[in-house]
Design a protein around this nucleic acid. Structure first.
Lengths: 123, 123
DNA sequence: AGTCAAACTAGACGCATGTCGAAGCAACGT
DNA sequence: ACGTTGCTTCGACATGCGTCTAGTTTGACT
């Protein structure tokens, strides 16, 4: 696992990675910092969670709503939300009884740029 | 791991997923089919391999060149290339003694679209 | 055929990770 | 104060996954 550290990385730590993968070779360091974000996207539950949160009106969703969308226990959903939060793909805010998760669209945008094919798809 | 199947999925099987994550909620089925691709990107070695291949002149690279870029054994690199190939991110072709890997830019483009933020980043 | 080099496969080992039940916190209503 | 509801943390378990060594296949060139 190449020394995988899954620690808090503020999205700012990835700003110097905003370069398409196909444009120039990624440095080992850049790859080490980018990979955890993609790994976080590599689980179907987390992908759906992200999509539910991001596409929800207001760009945020309450945990109680999210849990109802899955056949999984609350701790499991909570675990996945924690992963997404620690990697910087969402933020969490408690308002009274409920906790709301919000998608960090800058993070989506950065990762989208990394995968983009500037010259078009034609080989 | 939600019944993760990491089987050959031809990129065409993902064409109906070419919708930004933030635009509408992903179905469970779409998420199950998309997640393995992101999981494949979730390793620093594979990210660098992809970048090396895609950014190499001619859009392809020989395994022997790739191996030299890492402090890993040949079987390990071979393993990662197999993962990328089975998921449809690269193709492989043997020409004489050497095997050349080529990036499937349509696959990159599709995943980039999934993460795109159509309306712009401004919340 | 024999040999060498490139690349892959097989099997093993250890760490990472997804899931759960149980317990703990936090905020609200009575 | 007390119980209830929403959410998280803890600890445990099974499976997944990255890496290695050793062995195998493929092709080229004598």
């Amino acid at each position: 696992m190449s020394k995988q550290r899954l620690e808090l990385l503020s999205p700012a730590d990835l700003e110097d990675c905003r370069i398409p993968l196909v444009a120039e070779p990624l440095s080992a360091d850049q790859a080490e910092r980018l990979a955890p974000s993609f790994k976080a996207l590599g689980d179907p539950v987390r992908l759906r969670l992200l999509s539910l949160i991001a596409s929800h009106e207001g760009g945020e969703a309450c945990v109680c709503d999210l849990i109802e969308s899955f056949d999984l226990t609350a701790p499991t959903i909570s675990h996945h939300l924690k992963v997404l939060k620690e990697i910087g793909l969402v933020t969490a805010e408690r308002r009274g009884t409920w906790v709301y998760y919000r998608a960090r669209r800058e993070a989506f945008d950065l990762l989208s740029t990394v995968l983009a094919v500037p010259g078009g798809v034609a080989a």
